[in-house]
């Protein structure tokens, strides 16, 4: 009974033709009175249990779940905020700017830690560190690097082994990649040295975590930097081949966030879903693929990127232009 109705819309004509979604699926009774439109950057497989349990508890509500990249999501939502009820994204900076710009509805009375919400309109619901994912086979005979510094040494020691076999986000396309890159750069100069080294080894650039992990699993690349560890861990088929390393010198941890559109057509249902989502994600011992929000650590021991207006700094046109210039000159030096 866990999945009442699961329909795949994929090829249906209509709305979906107007937009090229990475994935588009409907949950719940197709004839339901209200249909929540959720625009998300999170793969459907991670969200499916939450969506299904929500429609099971609320038979009058169906959900249309639309998946696209973080940057595209931001653009789509800004253009038509009245077409979507909920926005879920891993790009905290873009989400915060949406809330700051008044796109988010304030929801009162949600019991949520102060550090995990902003203005009672943007709510964090996962804790996910950026990881270095390594194909064990390529490090045969070498020690697996535990820090960025170790990785730089390994790459410098044997450049021929890694040439063309490195991958990272193309920060120009991926909002999450840009967030990780800017937070890394803010934390340490090591980031730029690593980018220089990786640039010298003709690193491949990816738009999304999924593709990067596919290539890792197939051996196309052997090291992926700043990929979401949760995505790699969710892949059962790669358990033996891939090693997920959380850099020990400074971790960069992202929180996935959700907001209800200020112009949501079904605001009440959207708020109900938000409460459901937060409830599921802060309860312990729930077994599903989406990592929970780590509410146990106090603020001192937390390494997550803070939900604060400072996130907008790197979204500034001038700042972004400058950052991308530096990034390009580091990583695409030969091209």
């Amino acid at each position: 009974m866990r999945y009442l109705v699961v329909l795949i819309f994929g090829i249906l004509p209509g709305l979906c033709l107007a937009q090229d979604w990475e994935d588009q699926r409907a949950f719940g009774d197709p004839g339901a009175e209200t249909t929540l439109r959720i625009i998300s950057s999170t793969d459907t497989s991670f969200f499916e249990p939450i969506l299904a349990s929500f429609v099971a508890e609320n038979p009058g509500v169906a959900i249309e779940y639309l998946v696209t990249g973080t940057a595209a999501l931001d653009g789509l939502f800004r253009a038509d905020p009245e077409k979507f009820d909920l926005v879920i994204s891993s790009a905290m900076d873009l989400q915060l700017k949406l809330a700051n710009d008044g796109f988010a509805l304030r929801i009162g009375g949600v019991a949520h830690p102060d550090w995990a919400e902003w203005r009672q309109s943007l709510f964090a619901f996962t804790t996910e560190p950026a990881a270095i994912v390594i194909n064990r086979a390529a490090f045969n005979g070498l020690e697996i690097p535990r820090t960025r510094q170790d990785l730089i040494h390994a790459l410098r020691d044997e450049p021929e082994r890694f040439h063309g076999k490195l991958g990272t986000y193309d920060v120009r396309q991926s909002g999450l990649g840009y967030l990780f890159a800017t937070q890394d750069a803010r934390a340490s100069e090591t980031y730029w040295r690593l980018m220089e080294v990786m640039g010298g080894l003709e690193t491949r650039l990816y738009c999304c975590s999924g593709e990067m992990i596919d290539d890792l699993a197939s051996g196309e690349i052997v090291v992926a930097y700043n990929v979401l560890g949760s995505y790699a861990a969710a892949r059962k088929d790669t358990e033996d081949t891939l090693e997920i390393v959380l850099p020990s010198e400074f971790p960069t941890t992202m929180m996935r966030t959700a907001l209800v559109s200020n112009e949501a057509p079904n605001a009440d249902a959207a708020i109900a879903f938000m409460r459901h989502l937060i409830g599921v994600q802060t309860r312990r011992g729930v077994d599903h693929p989406l990592p929970p929000l780590d509410v146990a650590k106090d603020s001192a021991g937390r390494s997550t990127i803070a939900l604060e207006p400072a996130l907008m700094t790197y979204l500034d046109t001038l700042k972004r232009r400058r950052f991308l210039q530096e990034w390009e000159s580091a990583i695409i030096q030969q091209r």
Binding site: N100, G102, W118, R119, Q120, R186, A306, E308, P309, A310, L311, M312, T313, D316, L318, K319, R322
Partner: peptide, 25 residues
């Protein structure tokens, strides 16, 4: 003209009520 906005410029504007921040250059 290049303006390399320091992270602290907006970070210092964080308040308990999560006030919205706007800027223009």
């Amino acid at each position: 003209i290049e303006v390399d906005i320091p992270y602290a410029a907006f970070s210092m504007l964080g308040t308990a009520s999560d006030d919205r921040v706007f800027y223009a250059i």
